[in-house]
Amino acid sequence: MAESMRSVGTLTETEDGTTDSVATGSPIDAYVVALGVTLRRRGDRDDILAETADHLWLTAERLVSTGVAPLDAERAAVERFGDPEVLARVWATVPSRHRPLLAAPAAVSGLVGAAALAASTAVYQLRAMTGGWDQSEYLTWSSVAGVALLLACAPLLSLLADADRRGLGVRFAVGAAAVALAATWFVGGLGWAWPVPGLLVSGVAVLAVRRWRDQRVGLGLVAAAWPLGTLAYVVGDALHLGPVDYTYLQPILPPVVGFWIGATLMVAGVVAVARTLLAVRSTDRATPTPA
């Protein structure tokens, strides 16, 4: 019996008559890859491929248990499952499970916000490292950074809007409140204490990633961004790294480096999420939602 098939690999018989898998030349692996290519624009592709792989390996295992040679069993499993191109056409009639609210506007907002956040980071770094800024400049910067953060969070809120499956739910409400508080924090002139709104935003990403496994790269970057930035800030401050601002008697470098780390990772994550949202939109637009 082939009771311990792995998730990838080719069935091969071992000396004791059981089966094992190796990672090369597997018809099932090749099939899953081919199907993945045809489904590349679907937001739920990873889940579909996981189900497909499980089905194919189960089929192969059962065939092997009836005496079919392992490689033949894999080929038969693939044959029975159907042509990937044909299946892709069938899948095209099923809307992607992931159908975030206002995906395209949210993605565009996220990209604009990411660009503004990157610009804000550059300004923050420049002014902090070249002798500081006056109050008016600082307040302007803090307000712009707050708006940038708000726009950049739009893709996260779009994902959270669908997280409860029944429209706007608790997770969306919590996420929207956190983002609003984070943006207000900046606009209110408290940008110097950026770890607070930053960690709120990272928390929103954590909320979203629990539901959106296929967005884990982008959301993971946002989730890690501000904790890592804050850590760099705290450690650098504790070690008194770099030059000191003698007005406030604080090291200049740690908050700048921390903000740079947080903003850079967040920008990367938001861009990744925004790109997938745009792709999901193009898939769903072509397929009506069933009644």
Binding site: H55, T59, F81, G82, L87, T289
Partner: peptide
């Protein structure tokens, strides 16, 4: 039937 055609049906039923 091609076994793979079952899964779009399952996903459609789930979405419904």
């Amino acid at each position: 039937l091609p076994e793979g055609t079952l899964y779009p049906v399952l996903h459609r039923l789930e979405k419904s």
